[in-house]
Each structure stands twice: as structure tokens, then as C-alpha cells.
Design a protein around this nucleic acid. Structure first.
Lengths: 184, 184
DNA sequence: CAGTCATAGGAACGACCGTACACAACGACG
DNA sequence: CGTCGTTGTGTACGGTCGTTCCTATGACTG
């Protein structure tokens, strides 16, 4: 009957990496507040003690997880931004990034908001959001002046939050027109 | 020595109200995650059992607290909005509301973000934020078309979040120019 | 092949939580 | 004055949490 099929190998290189990914999964599926040592250990199918062995504290693990996610998203965005030939194309990249990546994928939307939550609660995680905002702005500044970049960045944050909390979210067209209106 | 000067009277009408206010204080000073039965009871100087006597659950108490706060802020905003003679004045009211009330007072800024956090975590509290957004939009629509109102509302949310999480927040002038740029 | 040491594993500790509940105090009312 | 229902209080239960700690293992080094 039982014998819970513990598949964890005794020797498990890359477990640390796997834990970071699993933490991200748990956050996306159940929220930061549910991302406990035990929940992550269960999801990764490793013993509880393994988490404190690889990460000095839970905060450190969450920081690693959010950092990995931010790296992925920010890098993908900057890549596309670099490829944009001019200002108009850059705006279209932003629209696509927002409606496609952030709002289009429930996972990324949830992760963005959960990061806000975590940052608001834990000063150690605030550095991650600040890094994200800084990189996002730098990407925008490839084709836009700093003032516009900053305003757009704030608007993007608002639209993300709005989408996450509101019933009847804005359509991609409405979002495009809001962004172009501000940047125009 | 001890005899901890428990000042709570045996008969204490209005205690329920006082608990709501105290809950708001605790949230503002220590965050929603620290707003536990025990923390609020300690701050209000009432016994623990008193909280479950007046409120069926902790969520219900937090909802009452946030509702009271939202009522205050939303009503104050709508009042000033009604007094605005035209669109330009309305925009100035919005700037004043944002830079003065929300961003000017650390307490209100914290409470706004904590409400986002609570809403993201607890579906029962989401109704409060949705109510806030709806009222905010309705106030804006007194002098602005619905599309602009909605866009401004999202931008305001973004600016609040931005201010709370960012180092070097935007100045009131920068905020004014962002808002007028979108609404212009 | 023996020894070493980073890694893996599991149980336990102490703290805090929301909530339930039995009891004490009180005011209203006969 | 005695009874009763409402309101207030204190304690305890069952649970989850982060973290610590001791033991076991097995891959690598010499």
C-alpha cells in the first residue's frame, strides 16, 4: 500500500537548482504565503531538512526563486527590445510583453503580484523587485527617453495589478491604447 | 508588582468599533501578516477572546478594517471631485489626492499596499479592493470619460506601488506631469 | 581499500497561530 | 430578591511553522 515511492536519489546533484524551480511552482500555484519549507519539500519530494541544508533561510530560498524568475522575464524582454528598430516597434514590443507574457500567462501574472506581496512584506526581497524595475526601465530606455520610460514602467505595474485584482480586465487593445497614449 | 493595569471596563460599548480602528493601526504599523488576533488584542488592551466574540473570524475583522479605511479615503476623494468645476480642476484634485493623501502620508501608502497584499491572498478581501477601484473610477468619471478614467486609475495604482517599493520615488511634479500627460 | 567529508535524511523543539468553549460578571425583569 | 439571557474573559486544543541537530550514507582522495 504505502511505501511512498521516495524517488529522491541519495546522491542528487542539481537538487539545489530543482528546489529553486519547485519553490517557484509552489508560489505560482498557491501563493507566497503557502510557500513554506514543508510545502516546497513535499512538492520537490525531498526531506524537510534538505531545504535548510541548501538555503540558510526560507527568505533566501524565496529570493533565489524570484531572482531566477525575474532574470528570465527581464532578459526575454530586453532581448526583444534590443531587436526593435525604432520607437514604434519598441512600443509594440512593450504591448506584446505586457499582454502576452505578463497578462497572457496566468502563471507570470500571479508571480508578478506575488513578488509585489513578498517585497512589501520582506525587505530582503525588495531588492529583487527594485532590480526588476531598474532593468525594465533600462530596456525601455533603449528607445525612449528616461521620463517616458519611468512613466510607462509605473503604468505597466498598475495594469498588472489591475488585471490581477479586477473583474473584467482590460482587453489587449485597451492596454495598447493606454500605453501608446502615454508614450505618444 | 504586576496587576497589569487592565483598563478594559467590563461593560464596554463601542469596543467593536475600537477593535476595527486598532486593527487598522496594527496593519499600518506592522503589516497584514502581523495583524493576528493576539497582536490586535494586545494593541487594543482587550482579552483575546473578545476578538472572536465580536468578529466571527479574523478575515471578517480585517475586512471591516479595510472597508472603513477605503470608505474614508474614497469619500474624501469623491467629495473633492464633486467640488471640482471642470476637467482641469479635477486633474488637479487627482494630483493632490495622490501626492498628498496616498503618497504623502506613510500610513495611507502602507495601508494601500497592504490592502493589495491582503486582496491577493484572500478572496474575501478582494471585494474591498474592487469596491475601492470602482468608486475611484466613478469619482473620476465625474469629469473624465470612462476610458481615460480607467487608464488613470491603473496609472495611479502603478504609481502607488512604485512609490512603495522603489528607492528614489517620483516627485509630485513628476507625478503631475505623468497624470496630465495620460489625461491630456 | 581505508578514511574523510560534503550531502542526505528524519525527528524533535519551541513558538505562534485561529478558534472553541466553559465559566464569570452583569443588567433587565419578574 | 432571584432568575435568566447577554456580554465579557481566560484557558486550552490542535495544528503549522522555521529551524536545529544528530545520524546515515556514499563519492571521492590518498
Amino acid at each position: 500500500m504505502s511505501a511512498p515511492a521516495r524517488r529522491a536519489r541519495r546522491h542528487d546533484p542539481g537538487r539545489r537548482d530543482r528546489l529553486v524551480d519547485t519553490a517557484l511552482d509552489v508560489i505560482a500555484e498557491q501563493g507566497v504565503t503557502a510557500a513554506t519549507h514543508r510545502a516546497i519539500a513535499r512538492a520537490a519530494d525531498v526531506p524537510l531538512g534538505s531545504l535548510t541544508y541548501h538555503f540558510a533561510s526560507l527568505t533566501e530560498l524565496l529570493a533565489a526563486a524570484f531572482t531566477r524568475h525575474v532574470d528570465t522575464v527581464a532578459e526575454r524582454f530586453d532581448e526583444r527590445m534590443r531587436a526593435a528598430p525604432d520607437r514604434a516597434a519598441a512600443l509594440e514590443v512593450l504591448v506584446e510583453h505586457l499582454t502576452g507574457d505578463l497578462l497572457g500567462s496566468p502563471r507570470d501574472l500571479v508571480l508578478a503580484v506575488e513578488l509585489y506581496v513578498a517585497a512589501a512584506r520582506d525587505p530582503a526581497l525588495r531588492a529583487v523587485t527594485q532590480d526588476w524595475m531598474a532593468r525594465s526601465r533600462r530596456s525601455l530606455e533603449r528607445h525612449l527617453d528616461p521620463v517616458t520610460a519611468r512613466e510607462l514602467d509605473a503604468l505597466v505595474e498598475g495594469l498588472v495589478l489591475h488585471s490581477a485584482l479586477s473583474t473584467d480586465p482590460m482587453t489587449p487593445d485597451q492596454i495598447r491604447s493606454a500605453l501608446t497614449r502615454l508614450a505618444g
